[in-house]
Nucleic acid binder design. Structure first.
Length: 412
DNA sequence: GTTCCACAGGAATAGACGGGCA
DNA sequence: TGCCCGTCTATTCCTGTGGAAC
């Protein structure tokens, strides 16, 4: 027998569970796509396209829906001789200024051999280059700015929709599609930008469990061989996904992890139990990753909360976490942070989903405050902390402290 | 309706640090 | 090497906020 043996293969096409997989049909977004389609209709009519602003949380099909519709739009527009449609998509992640967006856009229109540098030109020159590229291109041009909330200044969002009205363009008709998962971004736009960019606003709500089931079934059918996936697996993945954030990406990851576990265990069926294992595994990974990105003080704040949790003192408000945190900080020989900064760390921890916060309000008697607790297994987080944090001294001091505290509390 | 509590969290600012560059 | 710049952490000061108490 050889050293390598082929796995019992449950997958037909594992890639179908990946985020970037494009199914032939987009399920679960019927209403949204219908409205989106209506908003794009002017393109086919040969009119000036609407500017569209699209918002919704991560993993609710904004980008996938846009790709899907625009692909069809390009295909259908080709049937009309008087329409010359160009679509350019730009992901603004990692780009912070209008200047950077403008240079990237110019390069999108130019050949690889003719790219411009992303620094060095006066802003007005870059804009002029952009206008001439757009005019050379002519016809209808749709520019999709994904994650548009990463841009910190309005300039390009103001200039682009008005380029034609301002006489910078004579040939091209421009339509902007802005995609954002930050709801407050829209409100923070200056009124003049808001009115032009947000002519059509589309909101993509989170997926509910039924929609997730549809999506997962569709993908699973392609991804797995027949009769490999037990009844209930899909439903369970969807239920977890709907409970957490209504995020399709997350549910798909869970399903894929479950399949991977089944493959690793050499079983030929994907079962409910594996879903639970996979979820724990993903959770562990997420927590480890979150913890590794924290500063020393973040770790100390987390330790403080964890030890309080172990003693049954949670949920606990930040001012009651502080003494514990302060003594931990002293134990490891660092100055404790001011309360304001400590709250930042607590906020960061709850953003990462490692701890949870509930806002409480006792009015004139007690004002508003937040109560923190961990909604996960403390042992698991502690283990992740020990694995991730190499800082000498912390664990020893903390476990010493915990021992003291627990012995103390045993006597009281 | 007004007041007021105690915190939430935004804004301005400073210092440390690291990478790119002449 | 020193300089510049952007990023990250932390501090200080501040305004905002929801609902119980008045």
């Amino acid at each position: 027998m050889g050293m390598f043996e082929r796995d019992t293969e449950i997958y037909r096409n594992r890639d179908a569970l990946r985020e970037d997989y494009q199914p032939d049909e987009l399920v679960g977004r019927d209403e949204e796509l219908e409205r989106y389609k209506t908003a794009l209709q002017p393109v086919i009519n040969g009119e000036q396209p609407n500017n569209i602003f699209l918002y919704g949380k991560t993993g609710v099909g904004k980008t996938a829906g846009t790709r899907f519709l625009l692909d069809h739009l390009i295909e259908d527009a080709a049937q009309y001789e008087d329409i010359d449609l160009t679509v350019k998509m730009l992901n603004c992640d990692g780009l912070s200024s209008s200047y950077q967006i403008a240079t990237r856009l110019v390069n999108k229109f130019r050949a690889d051999s003719n790219q411009i540098s992303t620094t060095g030109y006066p802003r007005a020159t870059v804009y002029d280059m952009l206008w001439s590229e757009l005019d050379d291109c002519g016809g209808t041009v749709i520019i999709v700015l994904d994650e548009v909330d990463h841009i910190e200044d309005d300039s390009i969002l103001y200039q682009l929709p008005r380029a034609r009205a301002n006489g910078n363009l004579s040939e091209a008709k421009i339509g902007i599609i802005g995609i954002s998962n930050d709801f407050s971004f829209r409100d923070n736009l200056s009124p003049k930008v808001k009115s032009s960019l947000c002519e059509e606003e589309l909101q993509f709500p989170a997926y509910d469990a039924n929609e997730l089931i549809k999506i997962l079934s569709q993908r699973a059918q392609v991804a797995f061989h027949e009769d490999v996936v037990d009844d209930g697996v899909i439903e369970l993945c969807a239920a977890y996904g709907a409970k957490d954030a209504g995020d399709a990406r997350q549910s798909l990851d869970l399903l894929m992890k479950t399949g991977d576990l089944a493959r690793d265990y050499d079983t030929d069926t994907v079962t409910d139990d594996l879903v639970r294992d996979a979820r724990e595994e993903l959770e562990r990974g997420r927590i480890r990753e979150g913890i590794s990105g924290l500063t020393q003080h973040g770790h100390l704040v987390l330790y403080a909360l964890l030890t309080l949790e172990q003693q049954g003192e949670t949920p606990v408000r930040s001012r009651d976490i502080r003494p514990r945190y302060t003594s931990f900080a002293e134990q490891v020989g660092v100055d404790p942070l001011v309360p304001r900064r400590m709250r930042d760390h607590l906020g960061e921890l709850s953003m990462l989903g490692i701890i949870s916060a509930v806002e409480r309000n006792e009015g004139r008697r007690g004002g508003t405050y937040r109560e923190y607790s961990t909604d996960m297994d403390v042992g698991m987080i502690l283990k992740a902390l020990e694995e991730t944090v190499e800082q000498v001294g912390i664990h020893e001091s903390v476990s010493e402290m915990v021992d003291q505290e627990t012995t103390l509390s045993e006597y009281t």
